[in-house]
């Protein structure tokens, strides 16, 4: 049997997923308890086709299992290189943006309190500090992003519920 996932509003199969072994659900949001999506059962074919499909499924699951043993999680491989590059892009902008925001806040407060260079200098330093902190957090993955820690293949934390 094959199971598709239906969008409740326009009854239409969004995703057919029979290749992932026992997980007969949409790969996106596997265990959603929401009302918007209801998993429906679609009988695709007659009994004898079903039997052959089930057998194919078993074989595919076995192959996927072997591959995972050899090369680690299936989703890990290609994701990590682009995630690493994305992280690099993040860090540079993070430092600039924080300094600029510190500068703007300092300048605004100085104009308000008429203490021209004082708060400007203070907030630029604080801004640069914030930039460094943000870059550090991004790299370590403390901001729950796919940080360097995760990009380098640390075990992935699941949903943080």
């Amino acid at each position: 049997m094959l199971i598709g996932v239906f969008d409740a509003r326009n009854i239409r199969v969004l995703r057919l997923d029979s290749l992932w072994g026992a997980k007969y659900v949409a790969r996106a949001f596997p265990c959603v308890a929401g009302k918007a999506v209801t998993a429906g059962f679609v009988t695709v074919s007659e009994d004898k086709d079903r039997a052959s499909l089930a057998e194919l499924d078993r074989k595919l699951a076995a192959v996927a299992g072997r591959r995972e043993e050899k090369h680690g999680p299936v989703s890990g491989g290609r994701k990590s290189s682009s995630a690493g590059m994305a992280l690099g892009m993040r860090i540079s902008a993070e430092m600039i943006a924080s300094t600029v925001v510190g500068l703007l806040i300092g300048w605004g407060l100085d104009r308000f309190f008429n203490t021209m260079p004082l708060l400007l200098v203070l907030f630029v330093i604080l801004g640069a500090g914030a930039g460094g902190l943000n870059a550090y957090r991004a790299a370590k993955g403390y901001d729950s992003a796919i940080g360097l820690g995760r990009a380098m293949g640390k075990p992935k934390q699941g949903d943080k519920e």
């Binding site: 892009m89 993040r90 540079s92 902008a93 993070e94 600039i96 943006a97 924080s98 600029v100 925001v101 510190g102 806040i105 907030f123 604080l126 801004g127 914030a130 930039g131 902190l133 943000n134």
Partner: peptide, 14 residues
């Protein structure tokens, strides 16, 4: 606070 307000800037600048 600065790092919170820097978010739209870093998004836009990047």
């Amino acid at each position: 606070i600065i790092s919170y307000f820097s978010r739209p800037f870093s998004l836009a600048i990047r």
